[in-house]
């Protein structure tokens, strides 16, 4: 443990460099650059609002805020886990030649997506203010779901990063799984009907939905749901332990498979 910590301290500059690289390269050679982190969710929000709000006749004025919260958190989870999963393969040239603690690669992928995600929250602030959703003291609660989301993405990402080395198929399977997760997170529909039906467990025991729901409470100004908090946090911590556990166990074999 002490050795791991010493290694981390020695390579913390590398972690910073890798995070910076992810952010810099993501929008390099596009004219608007980092501004895309703001425009992209805004445009998706407009599309989703038109499709699910206007056309399907939901008259709620704050529906865009609702859509945007779900969509932002979901895409952080999706892009974070997806790029963490590929981290070992995309850095294979480095891994084969220089010794570096390997967990830095998936970790940096999750972190850089998280930084971009935090930046894109600016859009949410703007949209919420325009549509009259004003901050309350409950907004401080947002720290809890945001932190849980980071832990969850990291845990799942480490797990995927480990096994994607041995089974390339995982990359395709995970895209399908992500689609399923998207539809079961109540991003662009209201959860009430589903929660009252006998399929309520799809939402209740979906850790990402729990995070999104808690985050919405913070935005709309109501207390967090205790079940959501405990379930999502518990899931994330367990996943984090499993993720780092399998990664640690298998990491010496990576170099033979890439």
């Amino acid at each position: 443990m002490k050795k791991v910590f010493a290694g981390f301290m020695r390579y913390r500059y590398l972690l910073a460099e890798l995070v910076k690289k992810g952010i810099k390269l993501k929008y390099r050679r596009s004219y608007l650059g980092l501004i895309w982190t703001l425009i992209e969710p805004l445009l998706t929000m407009i599309v989703l609002t038109i499709v699910f709000g206007t056309l399907l006749g939901k008259g709620d004025k704050t529906f865009p805020v609702y859509v945007l919260t779900g969509r932002l958190l979901y895409s952080m989870f999706a892009s974070g886990t997806r790029s963490a999963m590929k981290a070992i393969r995309t850095n294979s040239a480095m891994i084969k030649k220089v010794y570096v603690p390997k967990y830095l690669y998936p970790l940096s992928e999750v972190l850089f997506n998280y930084v971009i995600f935090l930046l894109s929250l600016i859009v949410l602030v703007a949209v919420a203010l325009v549509l009259g959703v004003y901050p309350t003291w409950y907004l401080l609660q947002a720290v809890v779901p945001l932190f849980t989301l980071l832990l969850m993405s990291l845990g799942v990402g480490m797990f995927l990063a480990t096994y994607a080395v041995f089974f390339r198929d995982l990359e395709y399977l995970w895209s399908v799984a992500l689609m399923l997760i998207m539809y079961t997170c109540a991003i662009f529909y209201y959860p009430e009907t589903l929660l009252k039906s006998r399929y309520y467990f799809i939402l209740r025991y979906n850790p990402l939905y729990c995070v999104i729901d808690n985050f919405r409470s913070a935005i709309y100004g109501s207390p967090m749901n205790l079940h959501n908090t405990l379930f999502a946090l518990g899931f994330s911590i367990v996943m984090l332990m499993i993720g780092f556990g399998v990664f640690y166990k298998e990491q010496d074999k990576f170099v033979l498979y890439i």
Binding site: R10, Y11, Y13, L14, E17, L18, K21, M94, V98, V100
Partner: peptide
């Protein structure tokens, strides 16, 4: 230079 340097464990 900075990326490769930090891969080698050098600081910024």
């Amino acid at each position: 230079v900075y990326l490769y340097g930090s891969v080698l464990g050098l600081n910024r």
